[in-house]
Structures are given as structure tokens and as C-alpha cells.
Simulated scan of single mutants.
Amino acid sequence: MRMSKGVEWAIHTLLNLDMIGGGPVGSGQLAEAHGLPAPYLNKQLQQLARADLLASTPGPRGGFRLTRPLEDITLLDVVQAIEGDTQLFHCAEIRCCGKIGELSPPPTGACAVKVAMHRADEAWRQALAAQSLADIRLELDRTPTIRSVVRSALN
């Protein structure tokens, strides 16, 4: 399984907005702060806004701002906003294909591989849902200068 860079960018952006008081900050400023391509980051910001994790304020002093505190945003919220809510594993029922499929009786239950992979997918989602961005912010707060660095980069 591989997630796009957009997930990492989205998490950092949400954390950065929190560190400066929630926003609004323009997408160009947010992109420049980490040296990211502005058009691509803007795509991630729009996806976060569609998921109601960010709100967009138009105008010269506008930009993106958090819609709720980091305590109310989980890693699963961000992953689903950027990657979607699709299952990671899609069973193609290869147990029914080829010579093995021809020689085997028709299956009567769910594919054991599919069941195991869906169980693992659910455990992964539960682990993401159990971690809020506030948990990550607590880790970041152990770096004494991080908030002042982010504020300087975004002002």
C-alpha cells in the first residue's frame, strides 16, 4: 500500500495552520513554507475543504483556515479526504480461475484471503481513527522552536 505525498502535505498543512492560530493563510504561502508546488498543494487544500477540515475565505486577506480543533481531526479523516474511502484490497476471486478453479467445487463462503485482507484494512483504519492531529501536535511541541519557525514562514 502506498499513499500519495498529498496525505503528508495535508497533515503538515493542518498542523501548520493550527500553530499560527488556525488561519486564514493563502495556498501560495502554505506551499512556499515547505517548498511544495502550489498548484498541487492547492488540490489537496480543496480536498480538505470538501471534507470540511478546512474552509476557504476569499479575498486579499483570505486563504484557508481550520474548521475545527485538531482534537477533532483524525489521521483517518485526512487520509479519506485525500485518498478517498475505498478499500485497499479488491478480491478478484482468483480462487475460481484457472485449473484450480476448474478442479475445485464452487465456493460456498467468502474468500479467506479477502476476509483476512479486509480485517487488516479495518485494523489500519481503526489505528488511524485512534490518532488525532492533536496527538501529533503534542509530539511536535517537544521541538521548542517549531511554532516560531512555522509562524515566521507563514507571515
Rank of each mutant, 00 (worst) to 15 (best):
S4P: 00
K5S: 10
G6M: 13
V7L: 12
V7A: 15
E8Y: 10
E8W: 06
W9E: 14
A10H: 06
I11G: 00
I11S: 04
T13I: 09
L15G: 05
N16P: 04
D18F: 14
D18V: 03
D18N: 15
M19S: 09
G21M: 08
G21H: 12
G23M: 00
P24K: 02
V25N: 01
G26V: 01
S27Q: 06
G28H: 08
E32D: 11
A33P: 05
A33R: 10
H34V: 08
G35K: 11
L36C: 03
A38Y: 00
Y40T: 01
L41A: 07
L41G: 05
K43D: 02
K43C: 03
Q44L: 01
Q46S: 03
Q47H: 15
A49F: 06
A51L: 06
D52Y: 11
L54N: 04
L54G: 03
A55W: 08
S56D: 03
S56Q: 05
S56R: 05
G59D: 09
P60G: 00
G62D: 07
F64N: 01
T67L: 13
P69M: 04
P69I: 03
P69R: 11
D72R: 14
I73W: 07
I73K: 02
I73L: 02
L75A: 03
L75V: 02
D77M: 07
V78T: 07
V78R: 08
V79C: 04
V79L: 09
Q80E: 15
A81I: 12
A81S: 14
E83W: 14
Q87Y: 13
H90N: 09
C91G: 07
A92P: 04
E93L: 13
C96G: 00
G98M: 06
G101H: 11
E102T: 08
L103M: 10
P105F: 08
P105Y: 01
P106Y: 06
P106S: 01
P107E: 05
T108Y: 09
G109R: 10
A110H: 05
A110L: 00
V115R: 08
V115A: 09
A116K: 04
H118K: 03
H118R: 04
D121T: 05
D121E: 14
E122S: 06
A123M: 10
W124C: 03
W124P: 02
R125E: 12
R125Q: 15
Q126G: 09
A127V: 03
A127I: 03
L128S: 02
A129I: 08
A129L: 00
A130Q: 12
A130W: 15
Q131N: 12
S132P: 00
L133I: 06
A134Q: 15
A134F: 13
D135G: 09
I136D: 07
I136A: 13
R137C: 00
E139Q: 14
L140E: 10
T143V: 11
T143S: 06
T143K: 09
P144E: 12
T145H: 13
I146M: 02
I146F: 10
V149H: 15
V149K: 14
R151K: 12
A153L: 14
L154S: 08
N155W: 11
